[in-house]
Amino acid sequence: MNIALLGMTLLGGVLLSAQSSINGAFGQKAGALESTFSTFFTGMLLLALAVLFFGQGDVLLILDAPRWQLSAVWFGVSYLFLTILAVPKIGVTAASIATVIGQLSAGMVLDHFGTFGGVEVAFDVKRFAGLLFMLAALFFIYRGNKRRVETPASDSIAS
């Protein structure tokens, strides 16, 4: 059961990479802002259906939710827009790894202070070592990319 779930989560990561590539490619043609908009718009339509059929909460409670919780959307928009800007320039691998590093570093800071009401996890030596390993990884990705052989992006899924 847990193995199947982990497999699904792995697939989630695969989908996220696929999304970055697709959005990056679309953004090259339609524009970065336009690509972000299309993604949000189609996501909204799909989730509207999902909430209608499977929603167990109450959408209307949004009106009563604390304002600071609603501000998360600015970060959601920033994430997608910045990804669409970065992917065509540095490639999906470098963009994904840099994103993961930003995510984990910020996550460790939020954990340490228990910001936003999450569980408090102190920043210790192991986590610091993890941070160093991630910075080394970023360096290797950067170096690997400088030597890349580039061919023009193709329009088909399989080329």
């Binding site: 994430y79 930003g102 939020l110």
Partner: peptide
């Protein structure tokens, strides 16, 4: 662009 991608990750965590 590496910095932008890092920022994207930070946003994702906060979000």
């Amino acid at each position: 662009y590496y910095l932008l991608a890092l920022l994207a990750g930070i946003s994702l965590s906060i979000e």
